[in-house]
Each structure stands twice: as structure tokens, then as C-alpha cells.
């Protein structure tokens, strides 16, 4: 078992099976580098992750610890694509499994928790979690208005009115207007 500590004061620690924790490439590499030390006794501090987020992460890795490792396909440089199948070398579509759908904090009040989870998944290099989280957010944004997207992602419009007007004119066609 491995102990993980959140960045809170005082830190909250979680005990996780090593197999589950190794879904995080960051921690896996760290453990490999510290081969020989008794890691069971040494808590690993995670300076970028708070307790609620770490709790979610732990829940997710425990659920997925027995998943088969993702197949990493080498990018084929010289593909043999036909006229008809143009989207040959696009990445395969990510499908969010049922369990994960319920797991993701998807209520609008929880969106900041969702963003923290994504940042943590990125920091800890848990690619499958990052994939489904990003897929969820992308699906949510797709087709929405610019204002809605800004609001949802806490983004501020930092264009000058002139710049915005110019860009708007250029982009208008992509809206099919």
C-alpha cells in the first residue's frame, strides 16, 4: 500500500494499493526512481492536489486498477488512406464508460471540482481519466455560444472591442451565417 498526501494544512492522507496508484505515470516513475526505499512507510506529498480532488482520484484509480493497459499505437507516418476514408489517422473516439459517467462531478455547481480533477489528472499523468474528463467537457462545449463557453469555463474576454469585431467578421462564416 502507498500513502498519498494532499496539499491541505494539515495534509489529508489516503492509503491506496500500489497497483492502483501506478495508473498515475507521475507516481509510477517516482516509485521506480525510489526503488529500494521502503515506500510503504513514506507518504508521498502531492503539492498540486487538495483533499476532495485526491479523494476522487483515489476512487477512480481503485475502480480502474484492473483495467488492461491502453494500447499505444505508433503513429503511422506513411498511411495508405483512400480518397473515401479521409479520417484515417484520427484518434479513436473516446467513449466514457457508465461507471465513469456517474463518477465525474458533472453538476454545474461542481464544475470547479471537475476542473480541479482534470488538472490533477494531468499533473499525475493519468491519461485515461484525463481523456474521459476532457471528452466530457468538449462535448459540453461543442455547439454552445461563445458567451456560454466563457461563462462555463470562467474565461474572460480580453480582446479589445475592435479586435473582437474584426475576428468576429472573419469567423462568422464558420457559424454557417
Amino acid at each position: 500500500m502507498i500513502q498519498l498526501c494532499s496539499n491541505d494544512d494539515p495534509p489529508v492522507s489516503f492509503t491506496v494499493p500500489r497497483k492502483a496508484v501506478e495508473l498515475s505515470k507521475t507516481i509510477k516513475t517516482m516509485l521506480e526512481d525510489l526503488e529500494g526505499f521502503d515506500m510503504e512507510q513514506t507518504p508521498i506529498p502531492l503539492p498540486n492536489v487538495d483533499a476532495p480532488t485526491l479523494e476522487l482520484i483515489v476512487k477512480w484509480v481503485e475502480q480502474h486498477q484492473d483495467d488492461p493497459p491502453p494500447v499505444e499505437k505508433p503513429r503511422v507516418e506513411d498511411d495508405d488512406s483512400d480518397d473515401s476514408d479521409a479520417d484515417d489517422d484520427q484518434e479513436p473516439e473516446v467513449v466514457i464508460p457508465e461507471w465513469d459517467k456517474k463518477f465525474l462531478p458533472t453538476d454545474d455547481e461542481q464544475k470547479n471540482q471537475l476542473f480541479k480533477l482534470l488538472n490533477a489528472a494531468n499533473y499525475l499523468e493519468i491519461k485515461p481519466l484525463l481523456d474521459i474528463g476532457c471528452k466530457y467537457v468538449a462535448d459540453k462545449i461543442s455547439g454552445q455560444t461563445v458567451e456560454w463557453v466563457r461563462d462555463y469555463l470562467n474565461m474572460e474576454n480580453d480582446y479589445t472591442p475592435e479586435e473582437e469585431a474584426k475576428l468576429k467578421e472573419e469567423i462568422a462564416w464558420a457559424e454557417g451565417l
Partner: peptide
Amino acid sequence: LRLEIVCRK
């Protein structure tokens, strides 16, 4: 393409 207008970033 159309969401480039959200912000500079």
C-alpha cells in the same frame, strides 16, 4: 474555428 474568439489565450 468559431471559439477562437473566446479569448486571446
